[in-house]
Design a protein around this nucleic acid. Structure first.
Lengths: 120, 120
DNA sequence: CATATAGTCAACCAACAGGTTGATCAAGGA
DNA sequence: TCCTTGATCAACCTGTTGGTTGACTATATG
């Protein structure tokens, strides 16, 4: 399958930066060039270029070519593999809770039964 | 609501490390002590303790007290806020795709109509 | 009290991340 | 061909991360 450990390392690390999250947010509306992506931020174009490289190595974005422009595209599949990882353990955790609740109810019922026995 | 930018910074950074993901995976099955969490890894207990602090500052885990033990508990709500962020932009991206498809179909239909006109 | 168990604190270190500036490359347009 | 635009490469600096070891705190138990 797609995502090994290193892939997840890179993907989560990529989204740990607010500039890169901003880039992803912008790209969700459609492809954009480096200059367009750099515009909202108060950092150099080179810095933005580096951020895009980080996103690229994490598999979150891809590049195409259009004359001297190099548009950046979002790769939603990578986002999906991240939510897949998180949701897996979220669901296991929920299931544990459900079982704990069931156990407590069982104990509660046993206590009540015992009480009725005692009152006889 | 709960998660500001810094919260997301910390949460994503926390999951960027395989040891910390391993800890989260373990905790999804239920609370555990530092020693239990450290056991599968070939690093010092102090290092694991640090990882747990990082997870704590990210809001992903909480601590309780049980005699000299300090069990660690998963906080699933923090995981949820991460998937919420990701899914938001995943869905916007999907919607953009849907609209693009619709546009292409419209163009296609127009071309065919034009063709019929020409053939009259 | 003395000792074992569970965990944290502190100092240190190597590697990496995110930023800068200056030079360079690549593709149009005059 | 020369110039402009779009973007990357390279060198460098600084702060942060993830790891180490050694000392310390806190709770239970002989």
């Amino acid at each position: 399958m797609t995502k090994d450990g290193i892939g997840l390392d890179r993907a989560f690390a990529a989204l740990a930066d607010p500039v890169r999250r901003g880039i992803i947010a912008r790209l969700s509306r459609g492809p954009a060039t480096v200059n367009e992506l750099a515009e909202p931020f108060e950092i150099s174009k080179q810095a933005v270029s580096k951020h895009i490289q980080v996103l690229g190595q994490a598999g979150l974005v891809t590049r195409t070519r259009d004359a001297q422009r190099r548009p950046v595209h979002l790769n939603a599949a990578a986002l999906e593999s991240m939510t897949a990882w998180i949701d897996r353990y979220r669901l296991i955790h929920e299931e544990q809770f459900r079982r704990l609740d069931a156990l407590l109810e069982t104990i509660d019922a046993a206590v009540k039964r015992q009480k009725r026995e005692d009152e006889k």
